[in-house]
């Protein structure tokens, strides 16, 4: 957006004001997220920059909160750090257990959401699909309906069918998270299917490929970027979800967000900031993956590379 040479003084002034406003808005977007990173290395239990930190004095920084993260909930956190210490951490540390639970729940709910969602998206993108609009509206609704309503409904539903007595751990939370992840899968996969050339599948069928073979050899490679980014969205949705877990999760089903929620509500300690920092780094990694996938998908479909 270069300024034309004939621009008047007023326009020039406005142009720079406008750029400054934009810069401030971008700072508003990004600064609050980045600010937790240095603060998580604070040597003091404060949530603000100490004088030592501002002077870049190394003694003002420490990794004690990361250490606390690891040792919190352990039987013998002060024992020498040998193999039994690590075994203790693996089995008892609260945050490690929360991470395990989050990954298990996230994995299974993502598998359910992605497989069902991808198949449904294939059907939805066919021109002959009956009642497309209303079905699409129903499938996207878990994203729109306030989470507290979903959690309330699931609470009544699960207690009426006594899901916790079925003996399958995490089942209620996994099904709920799969439901919440489905809209994202539908949206991303149908987006890659827009402009999908259906003559390709016809050509494959013409040459004698079975529908299954056509799906795996022709359609799947083309929609794969969409499927993967849908799966990532579904996983992040589950990984970040706290309300449903609070309502329907068992007491032993602690996840990372639930642990954070408790930490923030009860007594916020800088250890929360170190969790936040780790999560920010994970989200940067995920964003990079999704961005690369998007470019690949555009290239595959012959759209201009970003």
């Amino acid at each position: 957006m270069a300024l034309p040479t004939h621009a008047s003084t007023l326009e020039r002034v406005w142009h720079y004001v406008y750029l400054t406003i934009c810069a401030l808005i971008f700072l508003f977007l990004i600064l609050p997220i980045l600010i937790v990173i240095p603060l998580s290395f604070n040597a003091e239990p404060y949530f603000t920059f100490t004088e030592k930190m501002l002077k870049f004095d190394p003694t003002g920084y420490s990794t004690r909160w990361y250490d606390l993260l690891l040792t919190f909930g352990m039987n013998e956190p002060d024992a020498p750090r040998d193999s039994s210490w690590w075994a203790d951490a693996w089995n008892n540390a609260a945050w490690i257990n929360a991470t395990k639970n989050s990954i298990i729940i996230g994995f299974f709910s993502t598998v359910i959401a992605t497989s069902l969602g991808t198949i449904a998206a294939l059907g939805l993108s066919r021109p002959e699909m009956p009642g497309r609009r209303i079905i699409m509206a129903i499938l996207i609704s878990p994203m729109i309906v306030p989470i507290i309503i979903t959690a309330t409904g699931l609470f009544f539903f699960y207690s009426s069918i006594k899901i916790q007595d079925w003996g399958i751990p995490y089942l209620g939370v996994i099904l709920a998270h799969a439901t919440l992840g489905i809209p994202f899968v539908i949206i991303t996969v149908t987006a890659t299917l827009v402009g999908f050339d259906h003559s390709l599948t016809k050509a494959a069928a013409n040459m004698g490929a079975s529908p299954t073979r056509t799906f795996f050899k022709v359609q799947m490679p083309l929609i794969l970027p969409g499927v993967i980014s849908g799966a990532l969205f579904a996983f992040v949705t589950s990984f970040d979800e706290v309300v449903v877990v609070l309502f329907v999760g068992g007491l032993d089903e602690q996840t990372i967000p639930r642990q954070m929620w408790n930490g923030i509500r009860e007594q916020i300690s800088p250890a929360i900031l170190s969790v936040a920092t780790i999560l920010v780094i994970i989200s940067i990694a995920l964003l990079t993956v999704v961005e690369l996938l998007r470019r690949r998908s555009e290239k595959l479909r012959g759209m201009s590379p970003g």
Binding site: L29, I30, I33, L287
Partner: peptide
């Protein structure tokens, strides 16, 4: 990317940041 990073960051992380 500056717009999408907050979008991908955990809700609890963003809320915590604002509390800080």
């Amino acid at each position: 990317i500056l717009v999408l990073l907050p979008f991908w960051t955990s809700l609890l992380v963003r809320t915590t940041s604002w509390m800080i």
